[in-house]
Design a protein around this nucleic acid. Structure first.
Length: 152
RNA sequence: GCAGCAGUCUGUUCUGUCGCUCCGGCUCAGGCCGGUGAGGAAAGUCGGGACAACACAGGGCGCCAUACUUCCUAACAGGAAGGGCUCGCCGCAAGGCGGGUACAGCAAGUGCCACAGAAAAUUACCGCCCCGCAUUUGCGGGGUAAGGGUGAAAACGUGAGGUAAGAGCUCACGCGGCGCAGUGGCAACACGGCGCCGGGGUAAACCUUAUGGGUUGAAAGGCCAUGUAUAUUGCGGUUUCCGGCUGUAGCCGGAAGAUGGUUGCCCGCCGAAAUCCUCCCUGCUGCCCGACUGCAAUCACGGUGGCGGGGAUACUAAGGAUACCGCAAGGGGUAGGCCGUUAGAGCUGUAUCGUGAGGUGCAGCCCGGAUAAAUGACAGAAGUUGGCUUGCAAAAGCCGAUCACAGAAUCCCGCUUACAGGACUGCUGCCUUU
RNA sequence: UGCGGGGUGGAGCAGUGGUAGCUCGUUGGGCUCAUAACCCAAAGGUCGGUGGUUCGAAUCCGCCCCCCGCUA
């Protein structure tokens, strides 16, 4: 029964410490911060995503209790129709929302804050499951990068 | 029943889990509860408005747009009804039905009409006819536009008269145009009558006529925060003359009137802005002292205004200071918030008026408001549809389709374009049954 | 959001109603021992699409598609 399996999966995730919400404070809305991110941020590819992130040093812009602010974007060049762009962004956001807990705990343990952007670079429409897998991989790599930087 | 054409409407639903936007309520807070949430095209940005800022006595020219009539509308290049023209089908015909239509004027002027052709608009190559000279084919002058050929298009058509040959030159019938009055119609127009005329096409060629049009767009605009921009620099100016009143400081009227403004140009018109007179110390008092956020932005310091007190200095409009007005130049900085912003040419129902687009009345309802931009993801079920299997059929089972076009960005009315499938209406044709 | 410009052989561009052209490139031939240059010749174009106006449209008009640019 796939329905039961799906519900079980969600219930197990609910038992985690962090809730699965995705509020406005977790999204990157500040114009100048976005500019700074694209200007100075570090980037890597996890096909079909390009991820750019920037660690914030002082607590200048973000509120203290928020570990990270994120932004999802799809270039108009690859997807001409607004419907397609909206859908891809929604899928990305959903995958991030369900898998961000690990990143948050890692950041809190390192006492760091982060702004990051996911850019969808493929011309094809994504499958949800595939997108979720790739975003998980990207988050793992992100955690790896952060912890390595602090240790070195 | 099927096909074609034209038009109208609709365009997936339910359940569970986890989420998002806005609104309301509760909570010290994390958060919780309730409600709410894409389209017929939200698209293209092609018309027109609302709204906003700036501008604006008025007239002429220019520029842009529109173009059968009447009506609808806030308005439109939109729509409705009607008329003309045209195409298709049916019919022997009269006519009927359906589709299309940028449909004012070339008979106001100017331009253009390749090639061909004599000539593309004051035509004359071949031809026909007359006269003169040669008397042989021909040459010269004139008349003519019926015939020939060219072309997309050749100077009303047919017949008769007429003539040297011919020609609307004349006549009959017909076709078309203009004018006049008549009948029907609100009108476009239709019908028949009289008179005159026969002028090719092209205005999606310039143009003419009529009508309309201020410019810029929510990145408008308002408030707040930040910043040295009310910065700074240059030029010019904050009047002159006349008359009257009169308290001699001004007031009233007229003329002139810089830089300028008025839609691109011209005329014309508009067009005038100001106060003060040193500095220091001190008391009381008012205001400012971060928009947002937040339960809360206070006090003090500092700044500034008012009313006082004290001290020093100066002695009166020559001048000085600051301020203001217009034009030109002008490097950089801020990149945030709130309002505008969603109750509206609104939606639903109903009655009524109208052929119709639509109008009016009554009742009920509140129905997105985001801003790197919410309206979603997953799972299941139903529906639709395609394929396969079973079955005479009805139907059943399995597999598939992330199930048409597509996502609000100030709002509204239209137009245009995209659109799986489904429903309905009208007309035409064919077939079947009665 | 508001607006502007453009689409013509393989490439870059002319052509504003009357037979679609130029330069480079391509192909064939010549010249040369050979290549380049040079000379001669040839091929190659639904003029972005689709309707309309006109005797006639790349050109004029409507609608649609695509590309580029400006506006913070």
């Amino acid at each position: 029964m796939p329905s039961v399996a799906g519900e079980v999966r969600l219930q197990t995730m609910q038992t985690d410490m962090l809730p699965l919400t995705f509020k406005k404070t977790e999204r990157l809305c500040h114009r100048s911060l976005i500019g700074e991110l694209f200007d100075k941020g570090v980037s890597f590819f996890e096909f079909p995503f390009k991820i750019i992130y920037l660690q914030l040093d002082a607590k200048d812009s973000l509120a203290a209790e928020i570990p990270a602010q994120v932004l999802f974007t799809v270039p108009k060049r690859n997807h001409k129709k607004a419907v397609a762009r909206n859908r891809i962004k929604r899928l990305m956001r959903e995958a991030y929302r369900l898998n961000k807990a690990e990143l948050y705990t890692a950041l809190q343990s390192e006492n760091k804050q982060l702004v990051l952007v996911f850019i969808y670079t493929n011309r094809e429409m994504p499958e949800y499951r595939q997108a979720e897998r790739k975003i998980k991989q990207a988050i793992h790599r992100l955690i790896h990068d952060i912890t390595k930087k602090t240790s070195s």
